[in-house]
Every structure is written in C-alpha cells, then in structure tokens.
Design a protein around this nucleic acid. Structure first.
Length: 308
DNA sequence: ATTATTTGACCATC
DNA sequence: GATGGTCAAATAAT
C-alpha cells in the first residue's frame, strides 16, 4: 500500500472514529441513563475504528514508520499535586508546562483472581511506598517507585489503580523515566530500538472514548480505552519483548512497557526501556495502552509522518 | 532478622 | 478545606 493510500485510509478511519464520538456526545450522556445496548453498540463501533487504526498503523510500522506518542500531552486530570521538594517535580515546576511530564498510562487486564494490583511484573522492580483512596473511584491507588531509587537515584515511579469500569483492568501510570541500570539491562541497542517501536505501535492502538463513570465522577472527563489489543495484534511482536520476568515480583504477570523521555528536561538521554528478554508465555493478560483524548490539532514535531 | 507492605500523618497545591 | 503524593513508623511476611 502506498503512503498516500495509507494516509487516506487512516484519515477515513479517523473521520469515522470522530463521527462515532460525536454520536456518543449527541446521545446526551450520562450513559447511566442510556440503554445498555446503545452504549455497547457505540463502544463496538469505536472499538472497530480503533482496531482498524491499530492494524493499519502496525502495517505502516513495518514499512519503517516510527511514531512518537504524545503521552505527556495527555491525562491532564491525572497530574494531581506534587511536592516541590521532589526532584522529579522540580523538573516540572521549573517549566510551567506541567503537561510535559513524561507520563504514560497503560491498562493491563488480569484474569480474575490474579495478583493484587502493583504486583504486575513489568520487567522492573518496584517498591510500594503508599496507597491512597482517590475520590470518585472505587479502588485505592497504589504508589510505587523504582527499587533503585536510593542506590542509583532512579526517579521512575508508577501508580496502579484498579479500573472502576472493569475491576480486572489495572490502570498503570508511569511517571518519569528509569535512569537505573534496569533501563538498559539485557537489551541490545537493536532490541531497544525495537522496543521503542513496539511501544509506539501499541500506543497507537489506543481506543479513546469516554467511559460513563469517569466522565461523571472525575473532575475532568478522561478518555480510556477498553482492552482491545487483541491476540492477533500482539502476536506480531517478538516474544522477547512481551514478557519479562526478572524482577522480584512474586506473581506471574507478564508485561511490556517503556518510558518516554521528557524532551524538555534533564531526563533527556535516558533510555527508553522495555522488558527483559526472559521468555515467559504471557498468560491471562490483555494489555491495552491508553492515551488521552484525540487531539486533531496535535502535531508531532519529531515525526511528520505520524498518523494518530 | 530482614525485607516488604500498610497506614496515618504530613505537605503542597488548588 | 479538599485532594493527591510522599514519608516513615508500625505491621506483616519471608
């Protein structure tokens, strides 16, 4: 498929997706008052568009297109408050653009009965340092930091919270980039490049639509994606990038992640990390990577060829 | 005994 | 004052 055709196809898919979203808005939510069937249909329509875009974009990746993800532009409502003494937040406070936080969210689906949130083995070792009840959400949020924070000064943290809509989904927000040797271990430069691409691709498989309770309960509407990255999509990737298991996590929980750099800060130069190459079958998991609201005006200065 | 997690207090921000 | 993020003492797990 030529570039032109591909772009047209993507443009059409995006148009369809936006129309579906508009329909969603015109249905005059809150959803709770709507027929479940309507909601489900609408979600299916949106999911179809998202899947299509994911597939198409994956193909485009095969042709060498690499895609940066505007995660730092997203999820403003998640930004929350911070302590100025924290060096990570000092970075942010230095520039007034809070949205430039290297923040990344993904959703991980776990089979019922699987480990507690936060025990996900995503290839890095984390230490829990707190948990908090968050207003408007059913489940408390767990706070984790890299276990190498003390020794190596790694500032990477993550927040894990069970989804209100689907308790089997864990919403994981990664903050900051790993500067510890976890970030570079095992992976060869080639693998790191691959993992970056994988990360980019997965980010594009985002399915953005408003979930009812979120729109109602949170201060600002957020967009979430249901877990739709299907097996077909994921199976296209190298298993070595799929399932690390070198951290001390006790629960068998495969995953993949990498971290986007903060283009404006000292975080520059940190290496996007993926997972170890330990090859465990990814069982009982369904990963979904989440982005915020689609922004048609968003431009990717680093990559003019970016589609979504 | 050591390590990890939980919990309430504290602090910054809004 | 409400909220979210972090600290550190208490507790639990190994």
């Amino acid at each position: 498929m030529g570039d032109c055709e591909l772009k047209n196809l993507i443009a059409e898919l995006r148009k369809g997706r936006e129309l579906a979203r508009q329909l969603q808005i015109h249905l005059n939510l809150p959803y709770s008052s709507r027929e479940t069937r309507e909601i489900m249909l609408l979600q299916k329509i949106l999911n179809s568009f998202e899947k299509s875009l994911s597939i198409v974009n994956f193909r485009s990746l095969g042709s060498g297109t690499s895609v940066p993800i505007p995660m730092s532009e997203s999820l403003p409502s998640l930004t929350g408050h911070s302590r100025s003494k924290d060096s990570y937040h000092d970075l942010i406070d230095g520039s007034k653009k809070r949205k430039s936080i290297p923040r990344r969210m993904q959703q991980v689906r776990a089979d019922p009965g699987m480990g507690v949130e936060g025990s996900v083995d995503d290839g890095f070792s984390w230490k829990k340092y707190g948990q908090k009840d968050i207003v408007g959400t059913k489940y408390r949020r767990g706070y984790y930091r890299c276990t190498h924070r003390k020794v190596q000064g790694c500032l990477a943290t993550k927040q894990v919270q069970r989804s209100d809509y689907d308790p089997t989904i864990l919403e994981i927000t990664y903050l900051g980039s790993h500067t510890c040797n976890q970030a570079t271990r095992v992976l060869s430069p080639y693998q790191q490049e691959q993992s970056q691409d994988l990360d980019s691709v997965i980010e594009q498989s985002i399915h953005s639509f408003h979930f009812p309770s979120t729109s109602i309960m949170k201060p600002e509407p957020r967009t979430f994606s249901p877990s739709i990255v299907n097996n077909c999509f994921m199976s296209n990737f190298s298993p070595s990038l799929m399932s690390p298991s070198t951290s001390g996590a006790r629960h068998s929980f495969g995953g993949n992640e990498s971290f986007h750099q903060n283009s404006e800060s000292e975080l520059n130069g940190t290496i996007s990390a993926a997972t170890s190459v330990t090859n465990h079958p990814t069982v009982g998991l369904d990963f979904s990577f989440v982005n915020d609201e689609f922004d048609p005006n968003f431009t990717f200065s680093n990559n003019p060829g970016f589609f979504f």
